[in-house]
């Protein structure tokens, strides 16, 4: 069994039922979780920012950092594991995109991340089936590959499923 920890801008793909994929303390970042039904493969990418144009060289070394490069990168990695990504074979779930208490909505990185991710998914004919987004709390995401059941956690709150 391996714990695959996904850092900021990182992604992981596994079809080993013993693996657990985890990302810690999402604030404004968003985790996109891909569950491929027939191959029972799980992928997770930890997106920090909406657009790679802000620092294209970062997207070369860490494509997962941005929504517009992270989604193609993880889909490519899943394809390489034998996942055919068309049709309704893929379940997509989103978590994160939180903000601080910001009445004027000026530090809205979380909201811009969510919008950018959804636009890109829609352009690929995909969309999230379940999401736990926004709010003013952080989220840690845990997915055992064996079950694909996602658990969210946050200090001071009881764990909850996604």
């Amino acid at each position: 069994m391996a714990n695959l920890v996904v850092g900021v801008g990182d992604f992981a793909v596994s079809n080993d039922p013993e693996d657990i994929i985890k990302t810690f303390a999402l604030g404004s970042c968003v985790a996109i979780i891909f569950l491929h039904k027939t191959s029972r493969t799980v992928g997770m990418v930890h997106v920090a920012l909406p657009e790679s144009r802000i620092k294209p060289e970062k997207a070369v070394t860490m494509p997962g950092y941005f929504a517009d490069t992270g989604i193609p990168a993880i889909l490519k990695a899943m394809n390489a594991k034998g996942c055919v990504t068309g049709g309704n074979n893929m379940i997509i779930k989103l978590a994160g995109g939180a903000s601080v208490m910001d009445t004027n909505n000026t530090f809205n990185i979380g909201k811009r991340n969510i919008l950018s991710i959804k636009k890109i998914l829609w352009s690929l004919g995909m969309g999230p089936t379940t999401e736990d987004l926004g709010g003013t709390f952080s989220r840690t995401v845990t997915v055992p590959v064996k079950t694909g059941k996602i658990t969210l956690s946050c200090p001071g709150k009881k764990d909850w499923p996604l």
Binding site: G27, A98, V100, D102, N104, G135, S138, P155
Partner: peptide
């Protein structure tokens, strides 16, 4: 537990 439960002063 307090993370993000603070206001941004506009």
């Amino acid at each position: 537990s307090d993370n993000l439960f603070h206001g941004l002063v506009p």
